[in-house]
Amino acid sequence: MAKIVTANARLVLRLYVAGNAPNSLIAIANLKAICDAHFAAGHELEIVDLLKHPLRALADGIIVTPTLLKLLPLPVHRVIGNLSDRTEVLLTLAGK
């Protein structure tokens, strides 16, 4: 799983997916498009495969995929689903 690190590391994201399942691929694509558009300056993104790292998911309290975690800036927020509702994703990342 690739780890995307940007220069401005104020935004740290973690996306849990389930292999190549359709919604997981859609979620990855949506998230990248949003980050490229709004947070190109600096963000950190980790994509974790639930099927490969079930224990990490357990640790993060993940019960379904795809689930996006905004780890920093605090507080931690999560978005559940394939991230096709861009507004909701932006609101969450903006630290509402």
């Binding site: 389930a18 359709p22 079930p54 998911a57 995929t65 795809p66």
Partner: peptide
């Protein structure tokens, strides 16, 4: 929009 769930009884996806 969900691909997988974690079975809460045996903690497996």
């Amino acid at each position: 929009q969900i691909d997988a769930v974690v079975d809460s009884r045996n903690q497996t996806p």
